[in-house]
Simulated scan of single mutants.
Amino acid sequence: MKKYMIDNYKNLARKFKIEGQLIKALRFYEKAYKQPGAKDDVELLLDMAINYDEFENEAMAEEKYWEVLAVDKEECRAYYGLGTIYDRQEEYYKAIEYYKKAIELNPIYDRAYFFLADSYEKINERNKAKESYKKAIEINNKDFWSHTNLGSMYEEDNENEQAYYHMKRALEIIPNHYMALFNMGVILKKLGRINEAIDYYEKSIMENEEYAYGYLNLSIIYKENRDYKNAIEVISRGIEYNPHVAVLYYNRACFYININLYDRALKDIITSYKIEPRLKRYIKKDEELNPIKAFKAYKLVFEKE
């Protein structure tokens, strides 16, 4: 009878969770937890830990994961859960320890490999990160984010053919994901495939008009080809959808300087500084901005003590 009550409350909690009623779900998990024998129910404790985590109550989530391990010290999901908590707390070495323990207990735990890779990347253990992403992919070759993140790492390390392979694979899994489309644009440009890069940046922008760096990178391609008209058109579109992104105004100012529209350039560079005051030292050192540095308005903003 007691086990029946625990299961009944768990089922009600799971029903409310599926419906998105997390507070009601937690209420029934807690009712189940009060029943005799509930503290030995690993599935209940794991459900509660996850639910607390979704409420950003990391202390209670951590407590429940430790209760799980007190019942079953070989429950890999509890070690994984602890790893995710320490990861968010930026205790990456501690997170790595728990992800590795989860993998030791379950060698095909692809999510543990994925987040292990992410933690290694955050502490700049790049080779270990790559190997962990590869392992996640070996277990699940349709893992979009493992392909995407691994491709990005290869691109950052100028291993561009490898980068292209993994980004292409990511786009076979989710063809219209803006980040993979953007990353493919970056890779293709580095491979000298400029027209294809332009196409992928445009596709990325279509999928997410509020991702500022799609406009930035595309406009820079046009600038490098001295096509300032298209560079300005693209980055102006970016500003329309991202009016608070300083780097867009900064770069448009540089484009305007190249076609001698100094008043517009000055207005943009001041706007970029107002949005992001830390840009001031870069602005003062940037020789491309020299044509506007004699303007009174420039001096009032950037040369005052």
Rank of each mutant, 00 (worst) to 15 (best):
residue 282 Y to V: 13
residue 285 K to Y: 08
residue 270 I to T: 06
residue 287 E to A: 10
residue 293 K to Q: 07
residue 282 Y to I: 11
residue 263 D to S: 14
residue 272 S to F: 01
residue 289 L to M: 08
residue 264 R to W: 14
residue 259 I to Y: 03
residue 288 E to I: 10
residue 259 I to L: 10
residue 293 K to E: 07
residue 269 I to C: 00
residue 277 P to A: 12
residue 260 N to S: 14
residue 286 D to G: 00
residue 268 D to K: 06
residue 289 L to A: 03
residue 278 R to F: 13
residue 262 Y to V: 04
residue 275 I to Q: 03
residue 264 R to G: 14
residue 277 P to H: 11
residue 259 I to Q: 06
residue 261 L to P: 04
residue 258 N to F: 05
residue 281 R to V: 12
residue 265 A to W: 04
residue 258 N to A: 09
residue 274 K to T: 12
residue 283 I to Q: 00
residue 276 E to W: 06
residue 260 N to L: 11
residue 283 I to H: 00
residue 266 L to H: 00
residue 278 R to C: 09
residue 280 K to E: 07
residue 291 P to F: 08
residue 265 A to D: 05
residue 267 K to D: 15
residue 258 N to L: 08
residue 265 A to F: 07
residue 271 T to L: 12
residue 286 D to V: 04
residue 263 D to L: 11
residue 260 N to T: 09
residue 272 S to G: 07
residue 261 L to C: 12
residue 277 P to C: 10
residue 278 R to Q: 15
residue 258 N to T: 02
residue 265 A to K: 02
residue 264 R to M: 15
residue 261 L to W: 12
residue 279 L to V: 07
residue 270 I to Y: 03
residue 280 K to N: 04
residue 270 I to H: 05
residue 257 I to Q: 04
residue 266 L to Q: 01
residue 268 D to Q: 09
residue 287 E to T: 09
residue 281 R to N: 11
residue 263 D to R: 11
residue 281 R to S: 13
residue 274 K to M: 13
residue 271 T to A: 14
residue 284 K to F: 08
residue 271 T to F: 12
residue 273 Y to H: 15
residue 265 A to Y: 03
residue 276 E to A: 07
residue 290 N to K: 11
residue 292 I to P: 04
residue 278 R to L: 13
residue 289 L to N: 01
residue 293 K to L: 06
residue 269 I to V: 13
residue 276 E to R: 09
residue 270 I to N: 05
residue 257 I to H: 03
residue 271 T to Y: 10
residue 286 D to K: 03
residue 257 I to N: 00
residue 290 N to F: 06
residue 271 T to N: 14
residue 261 L to V: 09
residue 293 K to W: 04
residue 283 I to C: 00
residue 268 D to V: 06
residue 269 I to H: 01
residue 290 N to A: 13
residue 293 K to F: 05
residue 283 I to M: 02
residue 292 I to C: 02
residue 264 R to I: 06
residue 263 D to K: 14
residue 273 Y to E: 13
residue 289 L to T: 00
residue 263 D to F: 09
residue 259 I to M: 08
residue 265 A to M: 05
residue 273 Y to C: 10
residue 275 I to Y: 04
residue 277 P to W: 09
residue 269 I to W: 01
residue 286 D to H: 01
residue 273 Y to L: 10
residue 279 L to K: 04
residue 279 L to A: 08
residue 269 I to Y: 03
residue 277 P to S: 09
residue 282 Y to F: 15
residue 279 L to I: 07
residue 292 I to F: 03
residue 271 T to K: 14
residue 266 L to M: 10
residue 265 A to S: 13
residue 272 S to Y: 02
residue 261 L to Y: 11
residue 262 Y to Q: 10
residue 292 I to W: 00
residue 269 I to E: 01
residue 285 K to E: 15
residue 283 I to W: 05
residue 264 R to F: 15
residue 291 P to M: 10
residue 262 Y to I: 07
residue 281 R to D: 13
residue 278 R to M: 15
residue 258 N to W: 01
residue 285 K to Q: 12
residue 270 I to C: 04
residue 278 R to S: 15
residue 266 L to K: 00
residue 277 P to M: 10
residue 258 N to S: 13
residue 257 I to Y: 01
